[in-house]
């Protein structure tokens, strides 16, 4: 794995911040959905954005998958694009928990709602810890059902240099919901994030 020049301490720091952000997000989700959310340690990897498509090609090859993107930007040059990937099968499980009934809203709206909730609760928890606050663009469907996941990712990740891949797995009591989140980050934002991590590390 290419670590994009992150030191071991920076990596540990980032992993911990992400773990805590996930914990905060799952707590909020659990209260909102009125169910217990079992959380696994999210695995993170820093990769060149051009390697992203191949990473996901196999996992979503035979399944109908949804890809939803949402831009985020905060202070101190923290910015990027979050992409949530999940299988359509999973989408219907979570939409029932969110209280959607069939025919209630369009499938597209359901998908953007789910992704927006996952993305913003997680990133808000992350921003809180680094004393930042984020704004978000409206979620945008990159692909649902049709289209090859790898091709869609190729077209998107093309614009970015680096990607922080976060493997997130939510287990909701009797439903399992797995999704992947990719944070695509431009080069200068990576060094901004390193500076922030160093500042946190210095404080301890």
């Amino acid at each position: 794995m290419n670590n994009l020049g992150f030191s071991e301490e920076q990596r540990d720091c980032l992993q911990e911040i992400i773990n805590v952000a996930m914990g905060l997000a799952s707590d909020k989700l659990a209260r909102f959905l009125n169910t217990f959310v079992h959380l696994q340690v999210p695995s993170i990897a820093l990769v060149g954005a051009m390697h992203i498509p191949e990473e996901f090609e196999n996992r979503y090859q035979d399944a109908e998958a949804a890809l939803v993107s949402q831009g985020f930007f905060g202070n101190e040059g923290v910015r990027g694009e979050a992409i949530v990937l999940y299988q359509m099968e999973n989408a219907h499980k979570i939409s029932a928990l969110l209280g959607y009934e069939a025919g209630d809203v369009s499938e597209i709206e359901m998908l953007t709602d789910i992704s927006s909730i996952l993305t913003t609760t997680f990133l808000n928890g992350l921003a809180d810890q680094i004393e930042n606050s984020l704004s978000y663009s409206a979620p945008r469907i990159l692909s649902s059902r049709h289209g090859n996941v790898a091709d869609v990712l190729k077209n998107t990740s093309f614009h970015w240099e680096h990607a922080l891949k976060v493997d997130i797995s939510y287990q909701l009591i009797d439903h399992s919901f797995n999704c992947d989140m990719i944070l695509l980050i431009p080069g200068e934002a990576v060094s901004n994030i390193k500076n922030i991590l160093d500042r946190i590390l210095e404080a301890y």
């Binding site: 209260r31 927006s116 913003t120």
Partner: peptide, 24 residues
Amino acid sequence: AWLKRKLMSVLDLNSPAFSSWEQR
């Protein structure tokens, strides 16, 4: 009903919600 559900998620999750003309 639709709007209340959106607004509730904004309050409970303290995060934004969106609606696009393409869907509604």
